[in-house]
Design a protein around this nucleic acid. Sequence first.
RNA 1: GCUUCCUUAGCUCAGUUGGUUAGAGCAACUGACUCUUAAUCAGUGGGUCCGGGGUUCGAAUCCCCGAGGGAGCACCA
Length: 517
Amino acid sequence: MEDLSLNDQEQQRRLKLAELRSLGINPYPVQFDKTHGAQDILGSFDDADTSALSAVRVAGRIVSFRKMGKASFAHIQDDTGKIQLYLKKDDLPEWYDNLRLLDIGDIVGASGFAFRTRMGEISVHVTEFTLLTKSITLIPLTKEETDAEGNVHRYSAFADKEQRYRKRYLDLIANPEIKSTFRIRSRVITGMRKYFDDRGWLEVETPILQPLYGGATARPFITHHNALDVDLYLRIADELYLKRLIVGGFEGVYEISKNFRNEGMDKTHNPEFTSMEIYVAYKDYLWMMDMTEDLIRTLAVDVQQQFGNVSKQRRDADEGDVSRAAIDFSVPFKRAGMFDLFLEYTGKNLRGMSREQLVAAAGEIGVPIDPSWSAMKVLDEIFSEKVEPNLIQPTFVMDYPVEMSPLAKAHRTEPGLVERFELYINGKEIANSFSELNDPIDQRERLEDQARIRAAGDDEAMVVDEDFLHAIEVGMPPTAGLGIGIDRLVMLLTQNDSIRDVLLFPQMRPEKLNAEG
RNA sequence: GCUUCCUUAGCUCAGUUGGUUAGAGCAACUGACUCUUAAUCAGUGGGUCCGGGGUUCGAAUCCCCGAGGGAGCACCA
């Protein structure tokens, strides 16, 4: 009967499960009517008048249990928090002796009345008790202590990052404060959707499986469609499809889209990630800059109001990692030309410099350069090294070289530049926008340039999409486009340093069991 | 992809120059306890020391190969 692959505690729980069944107790009943969440009771309990909470029904997972002979205390955890149950033998004549068959991790329901214990904790005095789900494996729940300021100190907390990412359900149980990150994530996406919908722009869905990929410079994932016997690409961006819709006559479309890029993984890159792209006809990038500023401010203020000081809620933050800048969303965002920022932070005017001049300039300001790099790569490197780290408060970087932006419209007054901005906050890019290129001849030349770069060996350069070019030939009205990296925005608003902490299920290398050499 | 560090009980961790039977707290089990809260007290069980190979009288410990993870770098919006 005993399975030797189970440890003693797992065997113990299976024995308890069998005993519960033999006692006629269903360990997996079908439902339970809750009337209150833990927080509902804690938040509304009134010592002067307990009548409002004289009949409550709560349910949740047992996270601690203290048996003291003929009375016991347990904490249960639900989606709103934890609340203590007080179980007395006199009040639970049928159930009390069976409490020995329960374990930490089991899900239970209880009804009773709220009261304050002698030690001062608001609790539920249980008069009826139900097992809702027996847990037959171990959960890394540990003891914790709440100090006078309300900070929770968890002993031997479930801290193994690998296991927390791989088994997020355990992480959510053992470290429930991370739930706030995902609540904020949801709130941000919902808020963004509402912002756009309120302005009459249409949410659309475009193909994830694409015969050609485009809209960004990146390596794609390739998959295969059996019935058609063709390879398809997982989208790297949805830009080219959304522009087709503007051509088709929609005047404002947006998509919150999962994109896939077959590249390295690190603190800020996951193979699949979420971005939002929006295109609005008859507008330019200056209009889009105003809209972006208002949108980001709206979202940030909303998160602040709903969740308060986020960093304080996150108790899993590394203690040493404290140098977080306070971002002020209330003041107007700084706006500066890319080359003005170069001048500001390097003292050099890099505008119009040749590759050789840029390499020389990089040497003078101490930015290491690989001699094989293109002029744009050198420029990009100087920007990353010398400018980006300074862009802590929200800053719009405007007007990029045309070579860096094959889908952006030539600048109305500045030759060699395009009408493009990127929003940087806390040293990281949050948004990217341009006056969209709608000159079909110019667009074709830019994509053909990309194709030449690609033929020269850069497999991240764009491919020519003839159908997209045809759409632009049909005629796309003047249009402003914007892309926002949702994951990075959420990282910013939740003060997480790793993209893995804002993804419920970050990509992990598959575990190999019993690997043989 | 490169560098570096880590992997010991369900969880968090000790483990001496390489030395007997690998330890602790929590969790589990048995018992006591009808307002406890890291409950307390007494007792008990629990290990593929990440996997494989090697050195050695002897390996958790030293060496090699492999796996996974963290951090950094490179690549990259």
